[in-house]
Write a protein that binds this DNA or RNA. Structure first.
Length: 321
DNA sequence: AACGAGCTCAACCGCAATACG
DNA sequence: TCGTATTGCGGTTGAGCTCGT
């Protein structure tokens, strides 16, 4: 594999650093890092990289671990609840990705940042306005977020997961019942006891893939990766999606998001606006949405604006300019 | 089938903050 | 106190993928 990877700037470095690998991680490197951390724990990333025998910078190891290999990293689509939370938290804190990520357990700052750039900024582009403009923020607040709440409620009603009494005149909407982990213990509750060299994996993973032992240092073999099997031996590229991490993802698949959320839920923080309040924020968009096809349950998570919305918003923007 | 445009996301960079000797 | 090493964060890049033509 080309260790120069993606053609990033290859700044002249010290002779020792010239041996450093760059670019996508291989399965072998992933196992090396996982095993080392399982046995020795995190911390001191530069020395960790050296001691583990990885020809990577400490920075690179840290990033790979935090964004990809950690057992509690969640992968898959950003859920409606998460979208709503991201929008809300971003409106409060701006591009404080790390801070926002603390409130979305299992999601990394990188993932949230990518979500924002690809999805949210796309909508701003559609509306021909700046993502930081007041107009766009208003559109988010009065259109996008109420719709997310509606869809969350609709989904909850359809699946019977509503835990409310049905008399939802309280400040906490039904949708908020699926909010989760707004406490700050996610980092200390990450299913790992690294000092013991044991990794606590989801029961199904342990049962199915590790014979119940869950001891990485002895159980891991690169062959469990179908990627490795299908690519050129160990040199095969892992990224962008390493099959390896399927063994670590928690929950194991994203169909369990609802259960995962509820199992980990805490109350929506009082300092945040309850999503239900978006219904009462001054505009009644629901009235015009009764027969709107985007609400009919398809996977339209990105399609929160319709033609009328865009037209309407652009009219609003124009009159405000 | 081939091609190009647009999108996604892992991994990089630079810089600021913090820790350490 | 100072210099160096390390960590953490936000911004950016680009390979690979998807989708439309």
């Amino acid at each position: 594999m080309d260790v120069k990877g993606r053609g990033f700037n290859s700044a002249i470095q010290s002779e020792e650093e010239m041996d450093l690998r760059r670019g996508p991680w291989t399965v072998e490197e992933d196992f090396t890092l996982i095993n080392y951390i399982a046995n020795h724990g995190e911390g001191r990333w530069n020395s960790l990289a050296r001691c583990a025998g990885l020809k990577r910078t400490g920075k690179s190891c840290r990033l790979r671990w935090l964004n990809y290999l950690r057992p509690d990293v969640r992968r898959g689509n950003i859920t409606l609840e998460e979208q709503l939370l991201i929008l809300e938290l971003h409106s409060r804190w701006g591009n404080r990705w790390s801070k926002i990520a603390q409130h979305l357990p299992g999601r990394t700052d990188n993932e949230i940042k990518n979500y924002w750039r690809t999805r949210v900024q796309k909508h701003a582009k559609q509306l021909k306005c700046d993502v930081n403009s007041k107009q766009f923020k208003d559109a988010m607040r009065y259109l996008w977020m109420p719709r997310l709440v509606e869809r969350i409620q609709a989904a909850a009603a359809a699946t019977g997961t509503s835990s409310g009494s049905g008399t939802s005149t309280t400040t906490t909407a039904t949708a908020t019942n699926t909010y989760h982990h707004l406490n700050n213990n996610s980092s200390s509750n990450n299913n790992m006891n690294l000092s013991s060299g044991q990794v606590v994996l989801p029961p199904s993973v342990i049962a199915n893939d590790f014979g119940g032992g869950g001891n990485l240092s002895t159980s891991f073999t690169p062959e469990i990766s179908s990627t490795a099997a299908s690519s050129d031996s160990f040199g095969g590229q892992v990224s962008p999606v390493s099959d390896l991490t399927d063994y670590y993802n928690y929950p194991p698949n994203n169909n369990n998001n609802q259960e995962y959320f509820q199992a980990n839920q805490v109350n929506y923080p009082e300092s945040l606006i309850s999503p239900s309040s978006y219904f009462n924020s001054g505009l009644d968009f629901q009235a015009t949405e009764q027969n709107n096809p985007w609400m009919d349950g398809g996977d339209v998570s990105d399609n929160l604006w319709n033609v009328e919305d865009i037209w309407f918003l652009q009219q609003q923007f124009n009159t405000n300019m």
